[in-house]
Amino acid sequence: MANNADQQLIQQTLNGDSRAFAQLVEKYQEYVFTIVIRMLKVREEAEEVAQDIFIKVYESLSSFKGESKFSTWLYRIAYRKALDQIRKNKNRVQAFELMEELTEDKHVLASNPSEVMEEQERNQRIKQCIHQLGHTEAALITFFYFDELSIKEIASITELSEDNVKVKLHRSRKKLYDLMKRQAVLSENLRNHGQTI
């Protein structure tokens, strides 16, 4: 169903209807932005790269043959672009700025006692844990949990073998679990959701 809707929007875009492409951007911008920001760790840079990704997608749309899902094809472009940016970007200052930003956020949020703020603080701590993963690990976690892609699809996006994806994903999950445990995110999570498990 989603595939048909995407295919229709792609066809309309290829026929010159730019509004159809805007709909595709609206639909996938959060997924693409999440992948990129998890890999690059810097919001402003991630936004720029995400924009470049959609421009690249527009330019290459005629080469999309529909052999895979549009989302898989799009994520492959996003993953490669983010990797290219990481290779280009050797600036350590940005990583330092990010750590500062996260620490500042933590202080602000921790000082607010309300329940909503507590929830936000918990989410912020989970984000910090994801930020501490390497770029490939963060991308794998995002593909696996946010868009619930299969191992086969993740392998196709990252151009890794399925076995390699399985191993890396297992390690990433274990690492993230340990980080969250250390940040005491999971214990609170257990308190809230433990009954349903």
Partner: peptide, 21 residues
Amino acid sequence: EEQLKKAVQKVGLEKPSMEFT
């Protein structure tokens, strides 16, 4: 595994700026 999945999914997707599109 379930705890981890719930915790990660709870964070949700990142939102780009309003003017992104």
